[in-house]
Design a protein around this nucleic acid. Structure first.
Length: 352
DNA sequence: CTCTCACA
DNA sequence: TGTGAGAGG
């Protein structure tokens, strides 16, 4: 999912965040779909079963959302979650393709589970993950209760998040996908987590994961291209709107081609065999001018303790002890960083 | 993914 | 004070 620009991003456009205090006081627009999906994928038992409440409703996404948001706020980071709206027309092909892949995976998961093949069951249940309307709504209700703002994008969440960051209302977009850069986000934060350990898929091996910031300006300068050309390269490699890209063309040759010929139009003239599920120029146009809104309010409010307990403990069977514990941390973070203005002297002391 | 608790 | 295993819902 998303564009894979990893190999294209020059080393010096990428910076590790060694201390999350660097982000203190900064607004970060999080791609909600990306975050919830990650929680659903990661918060599972070895056989692939997610956390569920007594009514059988999945709660993994709420657990992840709750604890991670508190962690960010404890570092003085101001989170705003951006939710996806209607996928754009040019995504139709990919949306359908994903739906079929999920259905197939769901069947395989059930089969593997019934036959006791635990690892396979897990693998396929992750591939079968679907973010339901119910999950999205429960996540929004939880954020409301926590006093954390969210923005409902008219279309792609990454596009809306990038728009918010471009206007200066957020310092960066946080997502695992690189798409926000194509949409013009000045900064992209990947791996925005506190616990820096992640299990390698398949094996019981853990690797250190550190958050990193990628700066769009530095990417473009280092590569000597414009954002429009970066988008052209992405289209040759493959985006959400043409996932296969152009067969045989990877990051390296895509870059060389655009660098040498200047634009996608010119490159396509020498690649007459290339086919696309959508007009590639329309895809570029969408990255440059996506459907976004300016009507949103980014305000952080005092957490509503009772409502949070109502949602997590009474509706979804979270342990009262754990939730109360986290609530103390949330309230403290709110007092410290979110209530009223923070003076520069306060900031100076918090650095220590 | 994140928390908690046991153990060094 | 830090690390690892196991549970969380």
């Amino acid at each position: 999912m998303g564009v894979n620009l990893r190999e294209l991003i020059p080393e010096d456009a990428r910076r590790e965040i060694t201390d999350l205090r660097e982000l203190m006081g900064k607004v970060v627009a999080l791609d909600a779909y990306n975050a919830l999906y990650q929680f659903l994928a990661a918060i599972r038992q070895p056989d692939g079963t997610p956390l569920i409440d007594r009514k059988g409703r999945v709660t993994s996404h709420l657990s992840g959302l709750f604890y991670r948001t508190i962690n960010l706020m404890e570092h003085g980071i101001k989170p705003v979650y951006v939710f996806d709206g209607m996928p754009p027309e040019i995504k139709r092909y990919e949306v359908e393709r994903r739906r079929m892949r999920r259905e197939k995976a769901a069947e395989l998961a059930e089969k593997a589970y019934a036959e006791g093949r635990v690892e396979e069951a897990r693998k396929y249940s992750v591939q079968a993950i679907r973010l339901t309307q119910e999950m999205v709504e429960s996540a929004k209700r939880l954020l409301d209760a926590m006093g954390v703002p969210y923005v409902q994008a008219p279309s792609e969440g990454e596009a809306q998040a990038a728009h918010i960051a471009r206007k200066g209302d957020a310092w960066a977009v946080a997502s695992q996908d690189y798409d926000a850069l194509l949409f013009g986000a000045p900064r992209l934060i990947r791996n925005l987590t506190i616990s820096g350990r992640r299990k390698l898929p398949g094996k019981d091996v853990y690797v250190e994961i550190k958050p990193e910031v990628i700066e769009l300006d530095k990417v473009l300068k280092a590569l000597g291209i414009t954002r429009s050309q970066l988008i052209d390269i992405a289209i040759l490699i493959g985006t959400d709107y043409n996932p296969d890209g152009v067969p045989g063309i990877g990051p390296k040759s895509a870059y060389q081609l655009i660098k040498a010929h200047g634009s996608l139009e010119k490159v396509l003239k020498i690649l007459p065999q290339a086919t696309f599920p959508e007009d590639p120029l329309k895809i570029r146009e969408y990255f440059l001018n996506p459907n976004v809104i300016d009507e949103y309010k980014l305000e952080w409010h005092e957490p509503d303790e009772k409502r949070i307990i109502e949602i997590l403990v009474h509706e979804h069977d979270f342990s009262l002890d754990r939730v109360e514990n986290a609530l103390q941390r949330l309230k403290k973070a709110y007092r410290e960083y979110f209530r009223g203005k923070i003076t520069s002297l306060d900031m100076w002391f918090k650095r220590k």
